[in-house]
């Protein structure tokens, strides 16, 4: 018996892609974060030097953060790409990046079952669609896709 060792992560409870923002609500799991600074970091999978940061509210283990969809249009990169979501918390004087995901419930295949709508960011005469989604490992990422009109 005993609790199996788990890698700390940021467990998603709700994702709200609406009103021009992507909001993520959840709880830090497997680690006790120090109160204070906490932020969401989105890393562009195709060009990892591009990151988007957003300040998060942290209350005990609970976190609540939202990103304006305009921030999810990368400065450069392919026509479609993926932002992988991490939550940065303070612990023992250093920052730890925790992968954001949904691993603690009993729903398999979240990428097919928990599906979120896309929002459109108008950019000149084109638009960029951004859509949060779960990966095959039940982590949270946000897809972007340049589209005509």
């Amino acid at each position: 018996m005993g609790i199996p060792h788990v890698t700390p992560h940021a467990e998603v409870e709700q994702v709200w892609p609406r009103d021009g923002r992507v909001r993520i609500v959840g709880r830090v799991h497997g680690i006790d974060p120090e109160p204070g600074a906490c932020r969401l970091i989105l890393v562009l999978r195709e060009h990892k030097e591009q990151e988007v940061h957003a300040e998060a509210e942290l209350d005990g283990h609970g976190f609540d953060v939202s990103v304006p969809i305009g921030d999810l249009v990368p400065a450069y990169g392919p026509l479609t790409g993926v932002w992988d979501a991490y939550l940065a918390v303070w612990r023992a004087g250093g920052e730890r990046r925790l992968r954001v995901g949904r691993r603690l419930d009993d729903i398999p295949d979240k990428n097919k079952v928990m599906v979120f709508p896309a929002q459109a960011v108008p950019v000149d005469d084109r638009r960029v669609l951004v859509r949060p989604r779960y990966t095959v490992r039940n982590n949270l990422s946000v897809d972007y896709e340049w589209s005509e009109g």
Partner: peptide, 18 residues
């Protein structure tokens, strides 16, 4: 049904499980 879930912003509460 998927469209209805999105329209009502129920994507955190109603799941089409397959």
């Amino acid at each position: 049904l998927r469209a209805l879930i999105e329209e009502l912003h129920l994507y955190n509460h109603v799941f089409l499980m397959g």
